[in-house]
Amino acid sequence: MTNGRMALSRRSVLAGGMVLGAGAILPGCKPVMSGLLTGADAHPGDYPTVRAVEFMGRYLDEKTGGRLGIRMFAGGQLGSETDTLEITSFGGIDFNRVNFAPLNSIEPMTLPFCLPFVFDSVAHMRRVVDSEVGDEVMASLEPHNLIGLCIYDSGARSFYNVRRPITTPDDLRGLKIRVPASDLYIAMVNALGANAVPIPFGEIYQSLAQGVIDGAENNWPTFVGERHYEVANYLSLTQHLLTPEALVMSKASWERLSRADQLLVREAAKASVVEMRRLWDIRVDEAKAAVAASDVAVNTVDTEPFAALMRPVWDQFITTPAQQDIVRRIRDMREG
């Protein structure tokens, strides 16, 4: 090791044989975290969330004189989000960026952030996650051996397809729409009259091109970055989901930090949110420009008829008073 850093193989991380950064344990002493900590992200290396955690690593490196840093394993190198969440909870990965959707099966208090049309805008979502509501939802992860550090953007998701513009829910009727393997996403799309088709993310382009599916839904950067706009000629701005993303830390790794370093990690995470949003907004603007220069027909949507169909979905997934309270407080933070 040089200056607290060592090379890692994927096998050593996944085996959990070492939690990178765990310092030597001396007899009678509490272990102290030092070195280069691991970070996992399913997004590619140039994605805003990856770059934000790398920013966080540089922040830690500078503040500790090189004693702490972060090495990112992007692009799903360490597995799917579901896989890396489990590894993180056991202490095999230090930091993990995941969408809130995979957290739903772990902690019910994360479900309100994933409801369709619960957020009115990106500004509304950011206001909520930066408030005590965001803090409470992230704190609910600790019993699951995860420390919630901060919340990133995942953009506004809209429908795109190869058939026609979507202006009312009736336009979705009968269309085969790809969704992630999520009970909530499936219920949402089916409630809108379409046929939800859960297929892996990496198969969307080919499935659109071959007619296996008629459409999908995602944010601007994904629509462009994954080249879906080359085969789906209609983008309808339903903005039905603004599900954020979470940066979590292994509780085992967290407890090896000194109190001062824990405070520093939270400080670095908070600073990384500002950087992530800056990068995200740039990425969205670039994607919009690319679509404007393409043959894609983009249409705005009156979202009220779509949102009106979501009440049964909300009732299906929001079942406890604590969840209902979070939803109420989210809605109370709308503009106007």
Rank of each mutant, 00 (worst) to 15 (best):
residue 108 P to E: 02
residue 108 P to Q: 02
residue 108 P to F: 00
residue 109 M to A: 01
residue 109 M to K: 14
residue 110 T to M: 06
residue 110 T to H: 08
residue 111 L to I: 12
residue 111 L to E: 15
residue 111 L to A: 11
residue 111 L to W: 13
residue 112 P to R: 11
residue 112 P to C: 02
residue 112 P to M: 03
residue 113 F to D: 12
residue 113 F to K: 13
residue 114 C to G: 10
residue 114 C to D: 14
residue 114 C to H: 14
residue 115 L to N: 10
residue 115 L to Q: 10
residue 115 L to F: 03
residue 116 P to G: 04
residue 116 P to T: 13
residue 117 F to H: 15
residue 117 F to Y: 15
residue 117 F to D: 15
residue 118 V to R: 13
residue 119 F to L: 11
residue 119 F to E: 12
residue 119 F to Y: 08
residue 120 D to C: 00
residue 121 S to Y: 04
residue 121 S to M: 04
residue 122 V to N: 15
residue 122 V to M: 13
residue 122 V to Y: 11
residue 123 A to G: 12
residue 123 A to Y: 04
residue 123 A to V: 07
residue 124 H to V: 04
residue 124 H to Q: 08
residue 125 M to Q: 13
residue 125 M to T: 07
residue 125 M to W: 12
residue 125 M to A: 02
residue 125 M to G: 05
residue 125 M to V: 01
residue 126 R to S: 08
residue 126 R to E: 12
residue 126 R to Y: 09
residue 126 R to N: 11
residue 127 R to S: 04
residue 127 R to M: 12
residue 128 V to A: 07
residue 128 V to I: 03
residue 128 V to Y: 03
residue 129 V to D: 04
residue 130 D to I: 09
residue 130 D to C: 08
residue 130 D to N: 14
residue 130 D to A: 07
residue 131 S to Y: 01
residue 131 S to A: 01
residue 131 S to I: 01
residue 132 E to G: 04
residue 132 E to W: 09
residue 132 E to S: 04
residue 132 E to Y: 03
residue 132 E to Q: 11
residue 133 V to P: 09
residue 133 V to S: 05
residue 134 G to Q: 06
residue 134 G to I: 07
residue 135 D to T: 12
residue 135 D to V: 04
residue 135 D to R: 14
residue 135 D to P: 04
residue 136 E to L: 02
residue 137 V to P: 02
residue 137 V to W: 05
residue 137 V to C: 06
residue 137 V to L: 04
residue 137 V to T: 09
residue 138 M to E: 00
residue 138 M to K: 07
residue 138 M to A: 01
residue 138 M to T: 02
residue 139 A to G: 08
residue 139 A to V: 06
residue 139 A to C: 08
residue 139 A to P: 09
residue 139 A to T: 13
residue 140 S to R: 10
residue 140 S to D: 02
residue 140 S to V: 05
residue 140 S to H: 10
residue 140 S to L: 01
residue 140 S to M: 02
residue 141 L to T: 10
residue 141 L to S: 03
residue 141 L to K: 12
residue 142 E to P: 07
residue 142 E to H: 05
residue 142 E to A: 02
residue 143 P to E: 05
residue 143 P to H: 00
residue 143 P to F: 00
residue 144 H to P: 05
residue 144 H to N: 05
residue 145 N to P: 14
residue 145 N to E: 14
residue 145 N to H: 09
residue 145 N to I: 10
residue 146 L to V: 05
residue 146 L to Y: 08
residue 146 L to C: 08
residue 147 I to H: 08
residue 147 I to N: 06
residue 147 I to W: 11
residue 147 I to M: 07
residue 147 I to F: 01
residue 148 G to H: 09
residue 149 L to K: 07
residue 150 C to A: 01
residue 150 C to R: 12
residue 150 C to G: 06
residue 151 I to L: 00
residue 151 I to C: 00
residue 152 Y to F: 06
residue 152 Y to I: 09
residue 152 Y to A: 06
residue 153 D to M: 06
residue 153 D to S: 02
residue 154 S to H: 13
residue 155 G to F: 01
residue 155 G to W: 03
residue 155 G to L: 06
residue 155 G to Q: 14
residue 156 A to N: 13
residue 156 A to D: 15
residue 156 A to T: 15
residue 156 A to G: 13
residue 156 A to Q: 15
residue 156 A to F: 09
residue 157 R to I: 11
residue 157 R to S: 11
residue 158 S to P: 08
